[in-house]
Amino acid sequence: MMSQNLIEARGVTMRYGKKTAVDEVSFSLPKGRVVGLLGHNGAGKTTLMKALVGLKGVEGELSVLGLDPVRERSALLTELSYIPDVAVLPRWARVHELITLMTGLQPKFSAARAKQLLARTSVGLKDKVSSLSKGMVVQVHLALIAAIDAKLMILDEPTLGLDVISRKSFYEMLIDEWCDGERSVLISTHQVEEIEALLTDVLMMDEGKLVLNLSLEAMESRFVALAHDAEAADAVAAAHPLLRYRAMGGKSAALFDGAPPPHLEQLGQRFRPSLVDLFVALTRKPELAPRA
């Protein structure tokens, strides 16, 4: 499958016995994007990521960096970085030994870069993995993976176990020093509020299906929230919004796919819905038909 996109998925389906974990998913990922992969636990996110790195075969068509992830996995892993949802490092090893090991295993790994990234943390090069806290182990894992000069980085809950300051530091490094307009990142996380400002695109999964595939720019022009007084509640409900909820400040709000009906515009005030509100509105709901 020849393409300028880093990922091309067409009708990708994945099953565990009789259970369909990923159901007819299609999307593409161009260069220079930061994409959030969102969904509840069990939505199919981790299963899809395993397919992207060649850990599980698929029905349908899947190309990552122009390669078949299963048949050409060795070649793929020289150009791709992956952090699974559980950071596993050998407990007996010291941090500098892991750097030496990575230098021998991954031709595009930079030991100097890894040390530079670790210098931002409280982890020392002589520290043993067994002596590190869970958060510090994750920091080491992140530094080792981010020091690979890859074209694509796939992150499954990459900051699990880190405090808010460490999470912020990692995402700043990711955007400022790894993303360069050519490389792309696919991030699965439950910390939607923290990464929304970093994303260029969002993929949203619900029960194995892809219910949203949109750039953040297009999302802002497509979905509209309307804050309204209690007196307008019945009229708003009659227009069948995607979601009715309490906005910041305690005011009632409704989320619409497209502009609200003209008669409602006079009853409230438009505002930009958050990605969290959109996630609540679209998951556990019927799939939205794609727009041209």
Rank of each mutant, 00 (worst) to 15 (best):
S3A: 15
Q4Y: 05
I7Y: 07
A9N: 05
G11T: 07
T13H: 01
T13D: 01
Y16A: 10
G17E: 07
K18H: 12
V22C: 03
D23L: 01
E24Y: 04
V25T: 03
F27Q: 08
L29I: 15
P30D: 13
P30V: 05
K31V: 05
L37H: 11
G42H: 02
G42F: 01
G44V: 03
K45S: 04
T46M: 07
T47A: 03
L48D: 06
A51T: 08
L52R: 07
G54Q: 08
K56R: 14
G57M: 01
G57S: 15
E59D: 14
E59Y: 06
E59M: 07
V64H: 06
V64M: 08
G66V: 02
D68H: 10
D68F: 03
R71D: 12
R71F: 00
R73G: 05
S74E: 15
A75P: 00
S81Y: 05
A87V: 14
L89A: 06
R91N: 09
A93Q: 10
R94C: 11
T100E: 15
M102S: 14
M102R: 14
Q106Y: 15
Q106V: 13
S110V: 09
A111P: 02
A111K: 10
R113M: 12
R113Q: 14
A114F: 10
A114S: 13
Q116T: 09
R120K: 11
R120I: 01
R120T: 09
S122N: 04
G124N: 06
G124Y: 07
K126Y: 08
D127V: 03
D127C: 03
S133V: 13
K134Q: 11
M136Y: 12
V137F: 02
V138W: 01
Q139I: 02
V140C: 08
H141W: 06
L144M: 11
D149T: 00
D149Q: 06
D156Q: 02
E157S: 06
G161L: 07
R167E: 12
S169F: 10
S169P: 00
Y171N: 09
M173D: 14
M173V: 08
L174S: 05
L174C: 04
C179L: 15
C179V: 15
C179Q: 14
E182D: 14
E182P: 03
S188E: 09
S188A: 15
H190K: 04
Q191C: 01
E193I: 05
E196G: 05
E196N: 05
L198M: 11
T200I: 01
D201G: 04
V202I: 07
L203N: 03
E207T: 02
G208F: 00
K209V: 04
K209P: 00
V211E: 01
L212P: 04
M219A: 13
E220V: 13
H228M: 11
A232H: 03
A235H: 10
A235T: 13
A237L: 06
A237T: 02
A238C: 00
L242H: 02
L243G: 02
R246P: 01
R246S: 14
A247K: 09
M248E: 15
G249C: 13
G249L: 13
G250T: 11
A254K: 06
L255K: 08
F256H: 04
A259H: 03
P262K: 13
H263Q: 10
H263R: 06
E265K: 10
E265N: 00
R270P: 00
F271Q: 02
R272T: 12
L275E: 03
A281H: 02
A281M: 02
L288R: 09
L288G: 03
A289F: 05
A289N: 07
R291C: 04
